[in-house]
Design a protein around this nucleic acid. Sequence first.
DNA 1: AAGTGATGTGTATTATTCACACGAAGTCAA
DNA 2: TTGACTTCGTGTGAATAATACACATCACTT
Lengths: 231, 231
Amino acid sequence: MKHTYEYPRAALTVDCVVFGFDSGAAGLQVLLIRRGLVPFKDHWALPGGFVRVEETLDDAARRELEEETGLKDLFLEQLYTFGTVNRDPRERVVSVAYYALTKPADHTTAASTDAAEARWFPVTDIPPLAFDHAEIFAAALTRLRGKLTYQPVGFELLPPKFTLTQLQRLYESVLGTDIDKRNFRKKVLSYDLLIPLKEQHREGAHRPAQLFRFDPVKYERLKKKGFLFEL
Amino acid sequence: MKHTYEYPRAALTVDCVVFGFDSGAAGLQVLLIRRGLVPFKDHWALPGGFVRVEETLDDAARRELEEETGLKDLFLEQLYTFGTVNRDPRERVVSVAYYALTKPADHTTAASTDAAEARWFPVTDIPPLAFDHAEIFAAALTRLRGKLTYQPVGFELLPPKFTLTQLQRLYESVLGTDIDKRNFRKKVLSYDLLIPLKEQHREGAHRPAQLFRFDPVKYERLKKKGFLFEL
DNA sequence: AAGTGATGTGTATTATTCACACGAAGTCAA
DNA sequence: TTGACTTCGTGTGAATAATACACATCACTT
């Protein structure tokens, strides 16, 4: 108790909406933690925590994410800053929200030091959330939808090798629409962004699918330039 | 000096990038103030200031804007939060940046209580700015460009009655490109967003121009829905 | 050998984008 | 009044992109 200021100050936190994609049935998912402390003890919430005075906002987001979920090195981008006066029942807290993209399979989502528990939920079926986290989540999903239509982000959500059908499922799952298979393939291939591999993906009693990977150079270029994906 | 916390806290500020559009030669402009206090005394800077503990971020932005520039009731939207550690030489300051749209002619930009001076600058020619305000400004301009292409925002920048040429100049000035007159008119009229008035705009020794106004209902609807303006 | 199930492919139709030039309507000055 | 000047306002054709749509292929299973 030794930091004193002339005027009262809000506490500053970061909160992260982590999206993952499961090519199987689950589709697009979000990572939530169960709170171990009051307020909202035992409620589900977005991972996050206080910003330290000597770290940037991005650093704080990455640090909290790793502490609470074990995830690191993921795509992370600032979303919006939430600053209504009574977001937190304890005191004035302003939260800088981030959203992140990753592959659920990639890292173990289990063991976390701070939070009691971390779990993936399908975005179509999330539990009630602490604070105004439902609002933050909704904003993140809207942003992700927007992003997907004008920048390639599939790379962050898919494994290194994937089939066109998986990529299509990703788009359908995020955008919440059905997409025509032939038109989808025509379009994504026209970007000259995907490199076909010699390998094929075998699964089930049916024709195996061609595997692709992203061309990292063109991927980055397109991410900067944007493209406008409408189907 | 009576507010004490267990951990050190960053100070929270808002900064506003106010855009105005002058149908004349000046084009797109930004409103800057000359700082009356150290640090960066007498440098140009974005209007802004500290967030009070009992006001929302939006409220803080509007309050500071009015205090420093006299502007109120303008279109205002959160842009991004800047939180690198040494943005401010004095101490850790995190700033929530906003951008705003208005008509320079609308309000008197003169008399301000806090800031020594407030002035419009063409966006193509702004002076060196205090802190990381140049970066904030650049982000705002990028955002405005993006916004213009997928939402109608002209309403906020143009007078109630305007000609198609003025609207086109606005787009050209923000996007930094030339646009074909016929294609532009075809496109904007196709949105069924503009209502032709019985009046005409006379100026100079040439054919007078038809005046239009926005249809407020359709304008709001399109602002929600978005449209995608590419020319 | 026949059945199953996801993969992979092409074309015709329609809408959108883009490039492009000139008469019309006023003002002003001779 | 006439002509010069300047911005306003308009249409078409070519090229490109978007959409709708159906069936043979391949590997595995029984």
